[in-house]
């Protein structure tokens, strides 16, 4: 009986051991690669502590100075989400198999989407800043591409799950592609689409708030400024204000989204 147990258990144990060893090697390798040093963390802890304690109390007066950059961040997010949403409409339709049965069309649309989604958001921002110069326009451009990727991915997946009945009946009455989209696809997909746009807006506000760290406008510029000049109390004001804005927008938007879906 013991032999039987052993025989059956061995393979899974072997696999486990191999995975374990591979992971262990990877971790040791990585630990060295990043030159991880717990000592430096312990040594540097007083500086981090000073930074955090130095942030208190926040400089409330500074609020007036950062209101405009924060509004700029919101403007960037609103405009970019709108552009991203408009751009995503044709691509959503092109990527949906129940709208375009031609796999060549859907596959190329999807490949393009996957490509766009692999590029990290701030990397995009960096490129646009290098191209367009420091300022909000670079932020709008980067965030447009970013929201475009999020919305299209979610939207085409939901378009593919809509009720096929109306699609068939539109085909049956001899509708052309435009009529087909306008009368069968749009009414069904619209609420979900609006919900995804809102969701993208939430992510966009978060991202836009730190865009300034790479020079792309908004509140992030002030953040790196205050940090570099050791004005931690001002920095605290920025961080708190950003948190409040993000949380408020998140809660409003998620409430609307719950109603829509």
């Amino acid at each position: 009986m013991a032999a039987e147990t052993k025989q059956i258990k061995t393979p899974s144990k072997l696999r486990f051991t191999i995975i374990f060893l591979v992971m262990a090697v990877l971790y040791v390798f990585s630990w060295r690669g990043v030159e991880a040093d717990i000592g430096s963390l312990i040594e540097g802890w007083p500086y981090i502590r000073d930074l955090i304690t130095g942030m208190w109390p926040p400089n409330w007066k500074y609020f007036e100075r950062i209101l405009d950059p924060m509004l700029e961040t919101l403007r960037i997010a609103i405009i970019a989400t709108t552009f991203g949403a408009i751009l995503s409409i044709p691509f959503t339709l092109l990527a949906s198999r129940n709208v375009f049965p031609n796999t060549w069309v859907t596959n190329s649309a999807r490949s393009f989407l996957n490509f766009v989604r692999t590029i990290p958001d701030l990397l995009l921002a960096g490129i646009f800043v290098a191209l367009l110069g420091i300022g909000p326009v670079a932020g709008v451009a980067a965030m447009t591409v970013f929201t475009f990727g999020i919305i299209t991915k979610l939207a085409y997946e939901s378009v593919e799950t809509i009720d096929p009945g109306p699609l068939e009946s539109m085909t049956a009455v001899g509708a052309n592609k435009w009529q087909f989209i306008a009368f069968a696809v749009v009414p069904q997909a619209l609420p979900a689409f609006v919900a995804y746009v809102l969701y993208a807006f939430e992510i966009c506000v978060r991202a836009a708030a730190i865009l300034g760290l790479v020079g792309a406008g908004g509140i992030g510029i002030m953040l790196s400024e205050t940090l570099e000049t050791f004005q931690y109390q001002k920095m605290a004001t920025i961080v708190l204000f950003t948190l409040v804005i993000v949380i408020v927008i998140d809660s409003i938007s998620s409430r609307i989204r719950e109603k829509l879906l």
């Binding site: 690669g33 030159e35 430096s40 981090i48 930074l51 760290l213």
Partner: peptide, 13 residues
């Protein structure tokens, strides 16, 4: 990351 850089320096850690 910026906060940790203040502590441990501009490193991958």
């Amino acid at each position: 990351a910026i906060i940790f850089i203040v502590g441990v320096g501009p490193t991958a850690f």
